[in-house]
C-alpha cells in the first residue's frame, strides 16, 4: 500500500500530461508529422517494436562494451595514479581536458581512426571516452578515501602494499566506483547515440540510426517511440547498476 501511495502522484501527473497532449493534438488538429498524439506513438511503438528492440539491443551492447572498456582503462589508470601524488598531478589535467572536450567534435576523428567500415568500434570508443571520467575520478577519489586511522592500523601491523590495496583501499573505493559507474552508465548511452548520429545512416544499426531513418521519412511517431526506447534503455542500465551496487554494498 505504501508503494502504491508513493507511485500515485508521479503516475497521476504522467497520465494527466498524456491526456492534455492527446486532447491538444485532436482539438488543434495538428498534422501527425508535426506532433502525433500519444496514441499514435503507442501504435508506432507496437508496430516498430521488433525493429526498435533489435536496435536497442545493439545500442545496449555498445554502451555496455564502452562501460567495460572505460572501467578497465579508468580503473587501471586510477590505481596506477593513486600510488604517487605526482602521477595524479600529471594525469588529472589530461582527464579533465578529455571530459570537457565535446564528444560530437571528436567523433568524426575517431571514425576516421577506427576505419569508416568499423563504425561500431568508433561508437564504443566514443561512448567509452564519455564514460571514462566519472569512473576514473570516482575510483581515484575512492582509493584515497580510506579512513586515515585504518591506514595507520595497516602501518602498525606492517601490511604489505598488496594487503593494503586488497583489504583496505579497494573496499573503500567500491562505493565511489559504483557512484561513478551509475553516472557513466547514463553517459555511455548518450555517447553511443551521439557517435551513431555522427557516423551516419546505416553504418551502425542502433537506436540512433532508427531515429535518423524515421526522421528522414517524417515518421514522427516512430521517432518519438525511438526516443522512448532510449529513455527506457538509460533507465534499465541505471537500475542494473543500482542492483549491482546494492548487492555489493550489503553492509
Amino acid at each position: 500500500m505504501r508503494r502504491l501511495a508513493e507511485l500515485g502522484p508521479p503516475l497521476l501527473l504522467a497520465v494527466l500530461l498524456l491526456a492534455v497532449w492527446e486532447a491538444a493534438c485532436r482539438l488543434l488538429e495538428l498534422p501527425v508529422y508535426f506532433l502525433p498524439p500519444p496514441s499514435a506513438v503507442a501504435v508506432a511503438l507496437v508496430e516498430a517494436g521488433p525493429r526498435l528492440a533489435a536496435s536497442a539491443w545493439i545500442t545496449f551492447g555498445m554502451a555496455v562494451q564502452a562501460l567495460v572498456l572505460a572501467g578497465l582503462v579508468g580503473g587501471g589508470l586510477a590505481l596506477a595514479v593513486s600510488l604517487h601524488p605526482a602521477a595524479e598531478r600529471a594525469v588529472r589535467p589530461l582527464a579533465v581536458a578529455l571530459q570537457v572536450t565535446p564528444v560530437v567534435a571528436v567523433a568524426p576523428l575517431v571514425l576516421i581512426w577506427a576505419g569508416l567500415d568499423h563504425a561500431d568500434r568508433a561508437v564504443v570508443a566514443l561512448a567509452a571516452v564519455v564514460a571514462f571520467f566519472p569512473l576514473f575520478s570516482g575510483i581515484l577519489t575512492g582509493l584515497k578515501s580510506a579512513d586515515p586511522d585504518l591506514e595507520r592500523l595497516f602501518d602498525l601491523y606492517g601490511a604489505t602494499p598488496l594487503q593494503r590495496l586488497w583489504r583496505l583501499r579497494l573496499p573503500s573505493a567500491l562505493p565511489f566506483a559504483l557512484e561513478g559507474l551509475r553516472i557513466a552508465a547514463g553517459l555511455a548511452v548518450i555517447g553511443a547515440v551521439v557517435a551513431e548520429f555522427v557516423s551516419g545512416s546505416g553504418a551502425t544499426q542502433g537506436l540512433a540510426w532508427r531515429l535518423l531513418e524515421a526522421g528522414n521519412r517524417l515518421r514522427t511517431a516512430e521517432m518519438l517511440a525511438g526516443v522512448l526506447c532510449l529513455t527506457l534503455l538509460g533507465l534499465v542500465l541505471n537500475a542494473a547498476v543500482g542492483v549491482i551496487g546494492r548487492f555489493l554494498l550489503r553492509r
Binding site: 579512513d147 586511522d149 585504518l150 592500523l153 583489504r167 583496505l168 573496499p171 567500491l174 554494498l249 553492509r251
Partner: peptide, 8 residues
C-alpha cells in the same frame, strides 16, 4: 572511533 572496516 572504533575504526572498524564497515564492509567486514
Amino acid at each position: 572511533s572504533p575504526t572498524l572496516m564497515p564492509w567486514a
